[in-house]
């Protein structure tokens, strides 16, 4: 193909040249299909994952699901083991995580957006949050073990759901802060000015106008953070969740917060490292349960975000 053509050549060839030729852009079509393939691979493996887990865990899911959900762990045989302690433990840990991470994270975001407009302390806090977001989860486990379970033993009671929850709270703190900062930044200044204009103090502007306006987005971020905590196992292993099991004795719910505990993802890890195919079935079945749980919580967050998305 020549690039340079005479004017006469252009004139005679113009109609042909402008016509779309089938198969001309082979490279383009190939590229596009490669991209689609990559996208399908990236998103489609979730379906494969779910299918494999359902097939592998079918024996438990089809026959013994209720037993599986309502019975505790058993060292004796896979058939006797259930995930009850893991579900309760995960809920307890998530609750503690929320109690510690949400107020701290939201308050930090408020400080960054509403008070410290780029001062030095705020820049340190921001840098700190970004770095915390990249710290591997297992390193948080060291923090939990050394500080929350040992130094603060008097408060947490050692390697308990409280210590585990505090560990995960530290881990998800950046998520809560970052989403809350975005939520607060999305609230228009005109709303703040309106409140200041009728004689509101800063606290009144924040508590009655800005926070209510940002609440739905903050809630979404919180739910996402808790979903992350719900699926996390590594830090909890260091904070005793792999070796402790909540007892079903006379202890009431409150007391179990300061006793031995475990969590659903840690139980899956325990199933996975037992030798024998039966345990594999348990691991797969429990994986389906946690996937459903985590996907449902995330779906809720995405739904909340779309439902309450506000155009200012």
């Amino acid at each position: 193909m020549t690039i340079l053509t005479t004017p006469a050549g252009i004139a005679t060839g113009a109609a042909d040249a402008l016509r779309k030729r089938p198969g001309a852009d082979v490279a383009g079509a190939t590229f596009k299909w490669l991209l689609i393939g990559a996208t399908v691979f990236a998103t489609g493996f979730l379906a494969v994952l779910l299918a494999v887990m359902i097939v592998d865990g079918w024996d438990v899911l089809s026959g013994n699901l209720w037993y599986f959900l309502t019975h505790g762990f058993s060292q004796r045989s896979a058939g006797e083991a259930g995930v009850w302690q893991g579900i309760i433990g995960s809920l307890q840990v998530a609750l503690v995580t929320g109690v510690f991470a949400v107020p701290t994270g939201v308050a930090t975001a408020i400080y960054l957006v509403e008070y410290a407009q780029g001062n030095r302390f705020a820049r340190i806090v921001e840098l700190n949050i970004r770095n915390l977001a990249g710290v591997p989860s297992i390193v948080y486990g060291l923090l939990g073990l050394a500080v929350f379970a040992q130094t603060l033993r008097g408060f947490s009671g050692g390697t308990t759901a409280i210590a585990g929850g505090m560990t995960l709270a530290a881990m998800v703190l950046p998520i809560v802060v970052i989403t809350s900062v975005e939520a607060l930044k999305a609230v228009p200044d005109s709303l703040r000015e309106a409140a200041y204009g009728v004689g509101a103090t800063k606290w009144e502007v924040l508590s009655r106008q800005v926070l209510p306006a940002a609440l739905s987005t903050i809630l979404t971020g919180t739910v996402l953070a808790l979903a992350r905590a719900l699926g996390e196992a590594a830090p909890l292993i260091l904070v005793g969740a792999a070796t402790g099991f909540m007892s079903f004795g006379d202890a009431n719910m409150l007391e179990t917060f300061t006793g031995p505990y475990t969590a659903l993802p840690v139980l899956i890890f325990n199933f996975a490292r037992q030798p024998g195919a039966d345990w594999g079935v348990n691991a797969a079945a429990a994986s389906v349960i946690i996937l459903v749980l985590v996907l449902a919580v995330n779906g809720l967050a995405i739904y909340l975000r779309n439902r309450f998305e506000r155009q200012w």
Binding site: P103, T108, A116, F121, I124, V125, T201, K202, W203
Partner: peptide, 29 residues
């Protein structure tokens, strides 16, 4: 009203400090 506003400011700053404390504790540990 002034006390509430001043108190809130301190509470928020304290929370921000707590996030730095988390980092400091990780590094120290």
């Amino acid at each position: 009203r002034r006390a509430w506003s001043a108190g809130a400011r301190w509470a928020f700053a304290l929370a921000a400090l707590a996030t730095v404390l988390v980092s400091a504790l990780i590094i120290w540990t």
